[in-house]
Nucleic acid binder design. Structure first.
Lengths: 209, 209
DNA sequence: GCAATCTAACCGACCGGTCAGTCAGTGTCA
DNA sequence: TGACACTGACTGACCGGTCGGTTAGATTGC
């Protein structure tokens, strides 16, 4: 291992978290070893446990960090638009950026949900994730309703439905044979499905086909 | 280990699969050991690998079996009703039977999705799962459209949206602090969210609140 | 009717490998 | 020089899969 000068604590932690993210996206929590993470980060295994108390703590911080950053980017994307429909479009574009990024993120996310379903520490982080999403999604819908663009009853429930469509479509996409090829179709469907749900009935809706 | 009389192959396999299901629901694929499964089934570890080539094969068969049985029960529930709205209600009742059953099933399902996102053999089973769901969900919507009850554009896309709402709400539910207490609300929300989406705009829809 | 023989279901000790976490020691910098 | 960053060999626990041995129950021969 090539010895370099000492890094600051926050630098090292970030490098290790990024490395852990790549690894978990590829292999999944229980198939990732501390050696894998350290090797990808260009340090020795000991460093990993010097900065994090345990593998579990490292991953809890990883998911926590991931969630904060996705929340921040969602808020940013939403704030950049004023038109409710464009806000939804921006959100879809953010959540479906590219096949490779989505594969990495969704794999890690599904893994995280599995952990969250069984270990209290992870469940708490997951609860925070959905609480943040509720605020953001619900906010878009509420604003859209105020502007008379969206036609739904309850903005909070509509927010939950939107989030469910995001997550549910992701799971359907992950089951596809060719992720790369089917990606654009899923991204479009996601946008269309959400807007169909939010927008008032247009001429033609209510009729066959 | 208490020696009992020999069982038939299909009996033993079923006992082992059921045992594996309980274990995976509690612990997750990579935390379950062959010993755990054998112990719960009341046999020795050797038996498990006598009937299944490997741990992976056992779980592939488990998920395959689980999926066939959920498909069968979905078709059954749908066939028992003729009214499209009642069919949706029956599906929701089937998918949200009780907190404990849901917890077990969803935990196993999330685990399975994690596996499916990384291992081809599991991905294929997952693809079969969603293909079956598409047929069932799409069929309900198509029938509802024919009967003039549902007002959506594309029955296949609507089927995908319904499935996404099921899966997406399940993930939101799994993040709740108190699964037991929040269960009825989720079940109701699920039914309401799907019917709101499928039914034509009613008086009041399109207006605030 | 029953002993001898056979078959395969079943057992569980064991092996080879893996991995989280430890720690004694080394390098770096102020 | 002391404090801190870092290394990587090591430990002990664990686990998937193997395999030699055991036994229930079926089959055969008389």
């Amino acid at each position: 291992m090539v010895r370099t000068s000492h890094a600051t604590e926050s630098e090292r932690r970030l490098v290790l978290l990024k490395s852990a993210f790549r690894e978990v996206a590829e292999k999944g929590f229980s198939e990732v070893t501390l050696d894998d993470i350290a090797r990808r980060a260009g340090v020795s295994k000991g460093v990993t446990l010097y900065y994090f108390d345990s593998k579990e703590e490292l991953f809890r911080e990883l998911f926590s960090w991931l969630i904060d950053s996705i929340h921040a980017r969602m808020r940013e994307a939403v704030a950049a638009e004023t038109d409710p429909i464009e806000r939804i479009r921006a959100l879809v574009a953010l959540i479906f950026p590219s096949p490779s990024k989505n594969r990495a993120f969704f794999r890690a996310f599904v893994d995280f949900c599995g952990l969250a379903a069984r270990r209290e520490a992870f469940r708490e982080v997951n609860e925070r994730f959905y609480a943040g999403c509720r605020a953001i999604d619900g906010g878009i819908v509420e604003d859209g309703m105020r502007k008379g663009v969206f036609a739904v009853r309850d903005p909070r429930e509509a927010g939950s439905t939107i989030r469910a469509i995001f997550d549910g479509l992701m799971m359907q996409w992950l089951a596809e044979r060719d992720l790369e090829a089917s990606f654009p179709a899923y991204r479009e469907r996601c946008e269309r499905q959400i807007l169909t749900y939010l927008l008032p009935a247009t001429p033609g809706k209510g009729e066959r086909r």
